[in-house]
Design a binder for these strands. Structure first.
Lengths: 248, 248
DNA sequence: TGATTGCCTTGATCAGGATCAAATGAAAGG
DNA sequence: CCTTTCATTTGATCCTGATCAAGGCAATCA
């Protein structure tokens, strides 16, 4: 099975670190118990590789803490990030045995894994699980398509602003665009990783970050902390329309 | 429900034009009969809109003939195609009511539709269907990610070659990269549509198409017909590695 | 403490593709 | 047949972001 991220709603996870409740929020008792039985944890250090493209993958997993990225690399070394896995994101593809992308821990990382076979068996016998996974995959597909718009049509400045807005939303848990008062969050990516996300070079990322700083859109604090004085202002810089597709 | 394409394997479709056998290749009798009951056809003229972003969508569908495209548009008019729907592709998202993208018929188009509600009901009671849809969605996600690599890291020439290779493969049904002898197929897109697919301008598309022609990679025949004297040669121009991810 | 290393910034220059503009070609309609 | 319209080509110029090259800064380690 190869890797794909499927977002789990954090609120479904309760205090269970593996958050697998979200996989089947309507399952009680037996299914949850079965999930509980087959789970195990793996941790990785920052920079360590989780799987290589082409590897056999015998598990699906969800991110407990830390961040991983999925990247594709061309023969001559050009790299494009195609997935960014944050806590509560799901990874893995029921039914596939080979990973199509490299997955790398960009920070220290803990994942909660389920062996593929029993997980698939449960999927086959528990309709809710398959449906929930389908829903999560559709969300991921939407995200990929917004990403495509970013890669294909946005300017460097808009790309940076978009990425910061995405991270800010994920980190602070805000769904809507509007937000009063300053927001701050940790930037978990290096300039190079941001560049790979955005289809830019690291120099351009650096320049545009500082341009946004000069213009008062963000402040760059110690230890890669980002302060956003006015989220709406940042949102304006993304090039997205104000209401931004939060309809279901 | 909003739109997403899910590829159906044409070989699963038998002689049924709606190809819904592929939705549940393991279903016999009752499920197929239910699908048969709820289906209806819609046709569109080239250029006509199927749904607008934000519209309510009460059906899922598969493309019977013709081509449709999903596009996202920014306020200032910049456009990015995020999905290209060829015959046998599936469109629609069980569980969602609002389309997130514009869907437009780029040629005359016939779609076979299923009302969303009964389709969802069948999904809920027929595990195979949900699993099959999940599989198709995962394929679509893979395609989106390859598209992301194209948008973020490929040169204009590589982008054009990649698109032509994709269309050639779909049109001629070849799975592998290798192909002896010349291939020809119809280019169903205008220069502008190609540009929207590739994140380029139509002028750049035109120039690079003619560059590929000058270099003998393709021939541009009458009525938008494309002749590829040597598919391997075209494949080399895409920037993808030779084996190209045809592992499952 | 100094050296190394990884990450980031900054500068100078270049080039790939965008933009603006005009001409050509082909199909459709009166 | 001429006109209109739309798709495409081609040319000239511009500009954004890439590339090449140094230098700075902070953390880590000997």
């Amino acid at each position: 099975m190869s890797l794909n991220p499927l977002k789990l709603a954090p609120q479904d996870c309760g205090d269970c670190p593996i958050r697998h409740r979200a996989v089947c929020s309507r399952c009680d008792g037996p299914e949850l118990a079965r999930l509980e039985e087959m789970k195990y944890y793996r941790s990785f250090e920052a920079g360590q590789n989780v799987v290589w493209s082409g590897d056999r993958m015998d598990f699906v997993a969800s991110v407990v803490s830390g961040i991983a990225s999925m990247t594709q690399t061309m023969e001559d070394g050009r790299r494009q990030m195609v997935g960014l896995l944050l806590p509560s994101d799901f990874v893995g593809r029921p039914g596939r045995t080979v990973a199509p992308y490299d997955v790398t821990a960009t920070t220290d990382l803990v994942m909660c894994c389920f062996r593929r076979k029993p997980f698939e068996d449960m999927m086959a016998t528990t309709p809710h699980v398959a449906q929930r996974l389908l829903e999560m995959t559709l969300d991921e597909l939407d995200a990929a398509r917004e990403w495509m718009l970013l890669l294909g049509r946005k300017t460097a400045r808009e790309k940076i602003a978009s990425l910061l807005a995405i991270l800010a939303r994920r980190d602070t848990g805000l769904k809507a665009k509007a937000a009063k008062g300053p927001i701050s969050f940790d930037l978990p990516l290096t300039r190079e990783e941001m560049a790979d996300y955005l289809g830019l070079t690291l120099e351009t990322v650096s320049r545009q970050m500082n341009a946004l700083k000069r213009d008062g859109v963000v402040e760059l604090a110690e230890r890669r902390r980002i302060i956003v004085p006015d989220f709406d202002r940042l949102a304006e810089e993304t090039g997205d329309d104000a209401d931004g597709g939060f309809l279901s």
